[in-house]
Amino acid sequence: MMGNGKVIEVKNLVKKFGNFVANDHLTFDVHRGEIFGFLGANGAGKTTAMRILCGLSKPTSGEITVNGFDVYRQSEAIKRTIGYMSQKFSLYEDMTVAENMRFYAGIYKLPRSKRLKKEAELRDKLHMPEIMNKLVGSLPLGWKQKLAFSIALIHDPGIVFLDEPTGGVDPITRRQFWKLIYEASANGITVFVTTHYMDEAEYCDRVTIMVDGRIEALDTPAQLMQTYGASSMNDVFLTLARKAKKAVG
């Protein structure tokens, strides 16, 4: 169905807002079950590209398919087969955990039996049976994050998009969250994640670094560090960013 196990195929993606080019001929593929990191400074065009892949925005030009569906014509089908989680976690704080799950299950037309199974899974994951009837607003940040991730996966999407999912979270919680990401990836779910924590970039299978709307580098973290003679992803990023500045200046 999807050639070579590619779940996202992007060729020459261009997105312009008036004269401003937010995405300048992006080309990349994402493989099934991969953890694909999307890195870049603020304003580099990560979010714009991600919004296009999620069907929230239409590209100016380029050939883009997600889960085998075309972003121009089949955005409804794309939306059914992807999950999404933003930095804000996007939960209803004045509703309980169970009510939140039921609401999102309803949006994706999940049968009741499947919803109950998902609830049970979450209960196990959090080791807190009574959590289901707690208001989300009363939960600690780390739990909200886990809950948001579980809800993003509630309809068993092929791909889950995470928009800076660990922003504003302490390092221990971040590490725990990455465990969940690995788990999902092991279950065959493709994880597309944007971040600006460079240590997190090292957890990804492959990493894209965007600078000023263009893809400057795309490879495994190990390969990137070798290519740029850097000891960490942070150094790789700084090298690329400096190069971009020189090109401008």
Binding site: Q87, K88, Y104, I107
Partner: peptide, 13 residues
């Protein structure tokens, strides 16, 4: 503000 609107827009609704 909560960001839930974005999640709703990404959903099939």
């Amino acid at each position: 503000e909560l960001g839930t609107m974005e999640v709703l827009l990404v959903s099939p609704l």
